[in-house]
């Protein structure tokens, strides 16, 4: 073996470079670990404060009491009114976003000419980019007065208009992801159905939609998670009156809106009132986590089906 003279300084350079490489890789790994640390931070903070909360309030009371009045003199800590508030607005939002989103997805992927699809899809996604405070304005100052034309008894703050506008906000989430799912269903599957003499509607509803069902379900679950976690629309337009009702025409309060309500006031940190927002936040986090995890699982299952 022949060693060339110029190789010797190079070896030194290689060794020094390897050091730099290791250092850089370490830095990049730290960047990546921020994601894990964030999750850990969220869980730790919520658990820590919630544990402190449950040292004062029993879990039983939290889950079963029908009143939520931590800011009053006579305190009740039942999350049910907030939970039904969230349930109500989410339900209303879904009753808009689910049919509209899926029908739009069917149109975009199956009926729409390719050129138009490329224009319509980003246009629809603009809806998801509008700041939620703008939707709140729209719900409070346009939709509610509009609804009053038809339902004179509707209150100025109500679950209905907040839910409806929230539904519009999550249309693109459901439509866009469902469209992606429908779009990748293989051509061969459609052709097999057409070859049997099926109409386009029969192919779409009988073959394509069922074939894409886990993708659509994933989109739907993500939409629900969005609706549960949405804050500003409900804080502005649905009210801050926790009450145990499914009446969409009266002011209510969602879990998210409650956190905003406390944050706006000057509740001293460390007090029990302050800790309630973490307990509510924890419940909110768990609720969305369940939907996110299932959404992720269905999305993965779908990707694996058609790769």
């Amino acid at each position: 073996m022949h060693v060339r003279v110029e190789d010797v300084p190079r070896r030194v350079a290689v060794r020094r470079r390897r050091w730099g490489e290791k250092l850089l890789e370490g830095c990049l790994a730290v960047c990546a670990s921020v994601a894990v640390l964030t999750t850990a931070g969220i869980v730790a903070v919520l658990i820590f404060e919630t544990a402190a909360f449950f040292r004062v309030v029993s879990i039983w009371e939290f889950l079963t009491d029908t009143q939520w009045t931590p800011l009053f003199v006579e305190k009740h800590f039942g999350i049910l009114p907030l939970a039904t508030g969230t349930l109500l607005t989410t339900g209303i939002a879904l009753s808009v976003a689910l049919p509209v989103g899926i029908l739009a997805a069917i149109y975009l992927s199956e009926y729409c000419p390719e050129g138009l699809r490329r224009a319509l899809k980003p246009a629809l996604e603009v809806l998801a980019g509008i700041p939620t405070v703008v939707y709140g304005y729209f719900a409070l100052l346009f939709v509610t007065p509009l609804l009053r034309q038809f339902i004179p008894s509707i209150a100025g703050l109500n679950a209905l208009s907040a839910g409806l506008v929230m539904g519009v906000m999550i249309i693109p989430t459901i439509a866009s992801l469902s469209d992606d799912a429908l779009y990748v269903v293989p051509r061969s599957l459609r052709e097999a159905a057409y070859a049997l003499g099926a109409s386009r509607r029969q192919v779409v509803l009988g073959v394509v939609v069922p074939a894409a069902r886990s993708g659509i379900l994933s989109a739907l679950l993500l939409g629900i998670s969005r609706a549960i976690g949405e804050t500003m629309i409900v804080a502005i337009a649905a009210g801050m009156n926790p009450r145990l009702t499914l009446n969409p025409l009266v002011p209510i309060e969602t879990m998210t809106a409650y956190i905003v309500q406390v944050s706006l006031g000057d509740t001293p940190t460390g007090s029990i009132e302050f800790r309630t927002i973490f307990a509510v936040g924890f419940a909110l986090f768990l609720a969305t986590l369940v939907f996110n995890v299932f959404s992720y699982a269905y999305a993965r299952r779908f990707r694996e089906t058609y790769r």
Binding site: F48, G229, T231, I259, S263, G281, L289
Partner: peptide, 21 residues
């Protein structure tokens, strides 16, 4: 998985994290 989940965590939860940390 963490990144995917974090993208779907409600923004107000980040507010609680920021408040505490």
């Amino acid at each position: 998985i963490n990144v995917a989940n974090l993208a779907a965590v409600p923004s107000i939860i980040y507010g609680l994290l920021g408040l505490e940390i």
